[in-house]
Nucleic acid binder design. Structure first.
Lengths: 254, 254
DNA sequence: GGCTGATATTAATCCAGGTTAAAGCGTGAA
DNA sequence: TTCACGCTTTAACCTGGATTAATATCAGCC
């Protein structure tokens, strides 16, 4: 069974058996179970290891002086949390779990060595980093130009899509155990207004929220509400290949 | 005379003479003069080359369906515009100049080769990419949690700092020939409101705008208005070294 | 069962920033 | 010198989302 890391990276590339075995071994050697809402690495800290989400849901966030919190990205299985740490001296934000999660640790020294000496692994991490950048840029547009309604719709659609791309889900139903306060922290809105917008999305029959289970009943409608355009995810290599797994999973969604 | 690219990268690392000569040669071989407000590479396009700003001022932006524009980052001399292009198939945003600029082209194939085979160059580009990511994350916080006044102050302070770090300027005066509409596109505000906020910053004697020349008369005050924290720029390696050029230039500012 | 604390919902009020429009100002072309 | 065009400034008014607060719902626990 391949590690989530490999499943993620293979959206973009394909590894030799040797690389695959290496990455599988590295990401399974040291794993740790975290509870919900625990920090994995904090702003200002350095770590000799990099961390990768294996199961669960985590996020990048920052606490501001005024007590508010900004969630900058959600991390799903396969996502590296802090591949910057082997280069930069310290984290400029915190990584924390939202739900109980299993997180793998890989030595930064080993990572660095792989990135400098294993071209196909280096390329995969470059792609992942550049995709992250694309997601960040899209979020800037999101906050700068979309209204609250589209913003919430966008966030839900993006998480839905990434879970589909990764193969965590195969239909329209997924576990997304976040509070409305979390969504507010991620969108820059207030919890009260998030609630109003979720109400509207439900009223339009775009989504159903049943506790921690979310259902996107009308993906096309949600996508429209979100004003979603997909090229920033750079999944084209995956979806262009007619026989690709990821392509099949995302058919009609991007 | 070192290429701006090297000056930028040496904020983080130091190159061997051989690497330095190589980068100098590559970035001087093919240069092109652009006028103000010309596109260098557009969303959706692919290019065999990557581009680097040598002089002038450029930005990353995206035009949205509704006719608005979002500027996602300003690019100053030394900044690579599109190091993603040698990995990703197409740009997910446009790069364009704001002022007349000289842009260098470097073959993507050569870049790729350097990144996979020259560790110190690869590390420098990793650092640059990760710094860009930090800047993007900071902008998300900016838009999510700062009010219009801080946002404008922040933008000005960041550009000021990057120009100082790079050595384009040595005092408080810099050329920043953008219109208030550009600033609105960069902050997600309206031009009218940008104007109001600039008025306030002037009233507080934090800045003076004299045509295309901007003067930060009170860096500490502007920094405070911006609620600026600097760790996301990851200039610590540069500023920690007591004899560093960059350190000297940024003394008291970060 | 009833108690407690966290979350979701709803409503009433307020304000930062948007919208629209009109008036200044500067520069360069004719 | 005048005109035209693009940018800046100011003012009047409006609205999306914030704020505050009260109420409802639910899960875990005694």
């Amino acid at each position: 069974m391949d590690s989530p890391l490999i499943k993620k990276m293979e959206q973009f590339t394909s590894f030799s058996n040797e690389d695959r075995a290496l990455l599988n071994r590295l990401s399974s050697e040291r794993q740790k179970q975290y509870g919900a809402r625990e920090d994995i690495i904090r702003e200002g800290e350095h770590s000799p290891d990099i961390h990768i989400v294996m199961t669960g849901l985590a996020c990048r966030y920052k606490h501001l002086e005024d007590g508010t919190r900004q969630i900058m990205a959600f991390l799903v299985p396969g996502d590296p949390c802090d591949s910057e740490i082997f280069i930069l001296n310290q984290m400029d934000h915190t990584i924390g779990t939202l739900t109980p999660s299993i997180i793998a640790s890989v030595s930064g020294e080993i990572m660095k060595d792989l990135l400098l000496n294993r071209p196909s692994i280096a390329l995969a991490f470059w792609w992942s980093t550049l995709q992250d950048e694309g997601v960040l840029r899209e979020r800037i547009i999101d906050e700068g130009r979309r209204d609250a309604y589209s913003r919430i719709a966008f966030l839900i659609y993006e998480v839905f899509l990434r879970m589909r791309a990764f193969g965590i889900i195969d239909d329209q139903r997924f576990e997304f155990p976040v509070t409305q306060t979390d969504l507010a922290d991620a969108t820059g809105l207030t919890p009260v207004h998030v609630n109003r917008m979720l109400g509207r999305l439900r009223q339009q029959n775009l989504i159903i929220i049943d506790g921690k289970t979310w259902i996107v009943c009308d993906p096309a409608g949600l996508r429209k509400a979100a004003r979603f355009e997909s090229n920033y995810l750079h999944l084209d290599r995956a979806t262009d290949q007619p026989d690709s797994e990821t392509g099949r999973r995302l058919r009609g969604l991007i």
